[in-house]
Design a protein around this nucleic acid. Structure first.
Lengths: 94, 94
DNA sequence: TTTTATGGTTTATAAAATAAACTGATTTAT
DNA sequence: ATAAATCAGTTTATTTTATAAACCATAAAA
């Protein structure tokens, strides 16, 4: 009847991050913070979780002299996101 | 950009309950437990929360000699559910 | 050179989800 | 008749989460 909702994606901020990354294919911390209107602490934690799960790839580097953390979704992440959407369909009728 | 996701609905079990009630218009505890495959403890707690929020109406009565708890969605609940679905659209592109 | 801003991370706290344990009736079996 | 099992839940305890607050290091501005 109801499919399980991946708890990693069933979280407002993490879902927003993935939603952005799936269409943009690369985004940095500042951009994500801006778009999601999250605090940096929260964003940092949620990025780590997505990274640990292999849903996104994180590269910490520099842009000129300033640090820059760039995120991009992985194939695993794309699949998980799609599966999540499919699962949601069993709850809503879309 | 991203709309807020009503935390009361952004919960696997509560969403399942609401999803059932929106199409069925009345369901008892046993039926909900069956359909959602939840434990009765969890179900009891989540029903209370939805009731406290005014999203559902709960009537505790009897069916013959046994107790029977019947739930039905309220207009407020229907609106909330629809708003939740609309909000979700900003995360997924449906 | 002190202050302020940038780009984060770490830690603490509050809230949530969930299961386990319990309650009180009702059958069923002995 | 009574002990055991089942039903329909509720309450309580525990684990996980989400989130913000506090912090840190570097860089730019005053």
């Amino acid at each position: 009847m109801f499919k399980e909702l991946d708890p990693l994606l069933h979280s407002e901020l993490r879902l927003a991050i993935m939603s952005l990354l799936i269409s943009v294919e690369e985004a940095d911390f500042v951009y994500l913070k801006d778009q999601t209107k999250s605090t940096s602490g929260n964003l940092s934690v949620q990025i780590d979780k997505l990274n640990d799960a292999g849903y996104i790839e994180v590269e910490r580097g520099f842009a000129g002299k300033r640090t820059r953390t760039v995120c991009k979704i992985t194939p695993v992440g794309v699949k998980a996101f799609e599966a999540y959407v499919e699962s949601l369909r069993s709850y809503l009728n879309l």
